[in-house]
Amino acid sequence: MNLTRRQLLLLLPAAAVAWESVLAGTPEASPNYKMTEHWWGMLIDISKCIGCGNCVRACATENDVPEGYFRTWVERYDVSDDDLVNPAVDSPDGGKEGFPLIQRGGKNFFVPKMCNHCADSPCTQVCPVGATFITPDGVVLVDKKYCLGCRYCIQACPYGCRFLNPKTNTAEKCTLCYHRITKGLTTACCENCPTGARQLADLKNPKDPIHAFLRTHDVQVLKPYLATGAKVFYNDLDGSVR
């Protein structure tokens, strides 16, 4: 890049103003929300998912997710009777427009996937600049003003939930609709799930129905052996799901 002295002199004050805005931040958007009173997670009920793709579309609309990238997506599993370790999985366009009919004869079901908002997340541990972090209320977020786009976190996530936004060149992921849950709304995917297969859960709220559900159902998290402290709980999860 060739810069003339004139261009550089014009650029410097602009850069100074931009840095000033980074230093300042913006004021608190939700004055009545206390981070210390919440610990967010999600419940996904496999037995209720119909593969309509409403969650994927709602997420893309709410969060301006770039075409071809997903903060949440739906996988269709086909597990044959004699091979439980190699399920056939498809997810055409992340399940955004639903799934075409296939009859493969095995056990078929849908698995919606998203960031697990791990309590001990590998992605935040590897960030070299403190651009990704877990908030005091248990949501893993990315500070796009600080992100260098080094992709280290994308490799570190064992669930494949991160991507590099091709427009901003910063890491991006599910925010658990942080701008909604801090205003008392549920996430866009939960709001638009027609069968209630997705439920936002506040694990610090003793009145949240999640507690009774976790006590009375066979609930799992993905890859529990990695000890990531995943907070997306799956009901009726088949053992073949990776």
Partner: peptide
């Protein structure tokens, strides 16, 4: 709150809502 810019939380929370609920 930790090894990150605390104001980033409020900035992310300030994103406009598109689904009214």
């Amino acid at each position: 709150y930790g090894h990150y810019r605390g104001n980033a939380i409020a900035e992310i929370a300030a994103q406009p809502v598109k689904f009214a609920g």
